[in-house]
Design a protein around this nucleic acid. Structure first.
Lengths: 344, 344
DNA sequence: GGCGCTTACTAATGCGCTTTAGGTGCCTTG
DNA sequence: CAAGGCACCTAAAGCGCATTAGTAAGCGCC
């Protein structure tokens, strides 16, 4: 900046005003300074900016999952990709960290805050009774929760924005469709019970089932892995009164479930219909192709990042909703076959 | 720090010395200062540290892939997970960005450098004739290349460390095994031709084939997607002289390939053996399960991060090698059936 | 007892930027 | 014509740390 000031024949302060669109310099001087800065390829030092109170121009994202569990679904990288689209427009950096559990995550938040490393946070995988929201309150860091916090249906949490996926609505739509196809015994192979959206899906299923008098409908929880998905599938299919439709909370479990069913001689979709709560290449690698709920993780990320930038600009916390995902019907769902009695 | 100085009854400089293990304070004072700092939960401001010449305590990682293509494989998140393990020990942050192409990636490098945002870089997906290495030279940023740069078999590139996966050796091992099983016509469904490791695998296959007089062996390139993997599979299987073994550069394409083969009435492994160059849950979701090369992306990431920290500590650039991955033999490979003549 | 030497500390400077408090010249206004 | 106001600019302080130069005290030594 000293260089620029010298070459443009003005003071350093004038340069600062000019480059930050602050009043205090004439348009002609501003233009001249801008030209010189560009010529020199000047970029503000992030450190110096941060030090003089401007914030670090960085937002943080930490995902708490054991390494093995990570990367089973393609959701995250796509989410991040969407986030980046928005952040890079504003030249905001993304500080990223993966840790083992939420306690570690809280530690990272504290450290980042103490070191003034981030201006805001993107919080993923909200949980039932999540310690992170109290922490963000305490630290006073702006944040947007990706996926809705429990118990906030009535209004936004103070200080936090939320980007809600309508899990309840999506579950209702799936049950609706399955009911229409004649299915009455529906089992939901859910993900981690500690996650808030798992809870919401389970509750929504129960609600929809009650409304229609579907006594057999219920959920079982897993850790999202193909292993547990397969095990759960086997358990429910081997019962006396097996379900005619299965809803899986991700694509990996759905594919594993189809494999298990086929192995047991249970035909898909002849004997059991299968719905995957996630669409990916995997859903077109099974036989038959999987009917899937097609969310748009990239758009999800974009929306979340946009809410965060709004918050950083001093906007009020808001709650925005993702549009209801489409149910892409492929070969794994069909009308229930009522003429055939199940073998003992 | 002022607070600490006051409460410990010393000057700010003494505090700085004490907390950074610099000489100039007595052990007893050092201990006292440490205690006070801990009590206050003090953490150095990253900005201030960076500004006074200490570096930003952050390393950068950018992945250049279109959003759609991203997340088809689980490799990245696991790699990052390994990287984090090492970085977080040293309290180094990871600045992460995804962009569309290498040109953008270079832009990001320039910006990060100009803004003093990172102390070093992790460079992934090295390419044949990669513009990034010249740029890093120019900027003088320490970096470690994950996967080997072409043309550097003789020695390390000045300024850059490398973590090499032995693609040539792995390909040789696969061909070895397939040859042992009687396979002579082998086709390699490769990934993006611009990536250096694709090139190395292709060259290694040709070499191994030449050595054994396997005239039918060759590679075709794709974009790693299930779509192109399926299309390539269909093309080669419909030829007059179809291969008896297929090597796929990732799990998604291998699974897609199996689906295509089955659809064409080509049995796996009866008519064609299949090997996936990547092991994941997906490899156990097909029928039969896929024989796969089992790399360890987490260890890969750990190693790369360790090299980078060594570089940041002033160590010399080095080239380290990952151990040769194991070939996990599952149901998709079998001895070639010589008694059955293929139908026209 | 004054010299050099070491040890343990303090004062002061600077990193690159933003911001506040001036300062100058010119135009308006009563 | 002096007082006030405005547009444009400069000087200087400060953000939180590392570092260099400087200071005071203790000690052995001839």
């Amino acid at each position: 900046m000293k260089d620029i000031a010298q070459r443009a024949g003005v003071s350093e302060s004038a340069v600062s005003f000019a480059l930050n669109d602050r009043p205090g310099v004439s348009e002609i001087t501003r233009a001249r300074v801008r030209r010189v800065a560009e010529q020199l390829g000047w970029r503000p030092s992030a450190a110096a900016r941060a030090l003089s109170g401007e914030g670090s121009a960085t937002v943080g994202l930490v995902v708490a999952r054991p390494a093995a569990n990570l990367g089973v679904d393609s959701f995250f990288l796509q989410l991040i990709s969407g986030i980046q689209e928005v952040l890079s427009e504003r030249h905001l950096g993304l500080l990223f960290q993966v840790v083992d559990d939420v306690a570690d995550e809280c530690g990272v938040y504290r450290r980042w805050w103490a070191e003034h490393r981030v201006d805001g946070l993107l919080v993923v995988d909200p949980r039932t009774d999540d310690p992170r929201v109290a922490l963000l309150d305490e630290l006073g860091l702006p944040g947007v929760v990706i996926g809705a916090l429990p118990g906030t249906d009535t209004g936004p949490h103070p200080g936090l924005s939320q980007v809600r996926a309508d899990d309840a609505g999506a579950m209702a739509a799936i049950v609706d469709r399955l009911h229409e196809l004649g299915h009455r015994r529906i089992v939901h192979i859910a993900g981690l019970p500690s996650l808030a959206h798992t809870d919401r899906r389970i509750r929504s299923l129960r609600l929809e089932a009650d409304r229609r008098g579907l006594t057999g409908a219920h959920s079982v929880t897993t850790d999202y892995s193909d292993t547990e998905g397969a095990a759960a599938t086997r358990r429910v299919l081997e019962r006396d009164d097996p379900p005619t439709a299965l809803i899986y909370d991700n694509d990996v479990m759905a594919a594993a479930g189809v494999a298990v069913a086929t192995g047991l001689g249970v035909r898909v979709p002849g004997d059991v219909s299968v719905v995957s709560w996630e669409d990916s290449a995997l859903c077109r690698l099974t036989a038959p192709w999987l009917t899937a709920l097609s969310r748009d993780p990239v758009a999800f990320g974009r929306l979340a990042a946009r809410e965060l930038t709004a918050l950083l600009d001093g906007g009020p916390p808001r709650t925005v909703r993702m549009p209801l995902p489409d149910l892409i019907e492929r070969g794994s769902t069909a009308p229930v076959q009522q003429d055939v009695l199940p073998g003992a």
